[in-house]
Amino acid sequence: MRTATFVSLFLAVATTTVAGCGGSFPPPSERLATAEAAARSARELGADKDPKAALHLKLAQEQIDQAKAQMKAEENKKADQTLSRAGADAELAVALAKENNARTETEKAKEKIKSLKKEGK
């Protein structure tokens, strides 16, 4: 009786440990989708045109690819963490691309003023 209890306790602990190791960690599909969507947004916003945005988009894409490989290898927990980084980089790429676009538009507006002032003379 005591032995049985001990065995079952051992089994329970063992199971918990296995789960903790990420063996049964669910594939981070949602995180993958979020990171990929962010990377796509950054690309659509013209992240390639700004060196800093392009760098973070590249980092995001590399980490997305790495996470996919990890998921294939069933290292889901690692993949989840990699995707967390990928998402952070993709979001930063989005912000930087937007900033770059805003800078271009502001410069354009200022150029217009300059040319208008010239024209008005």
Partner: peptide, 8 residues
């Protein structure tokens, strides 16, 4: 990344 994004 979040700090850099906020700055941007």
């Amino acid at each position: 990344r979040k700090a850099q994004a906020a700055d941007s």
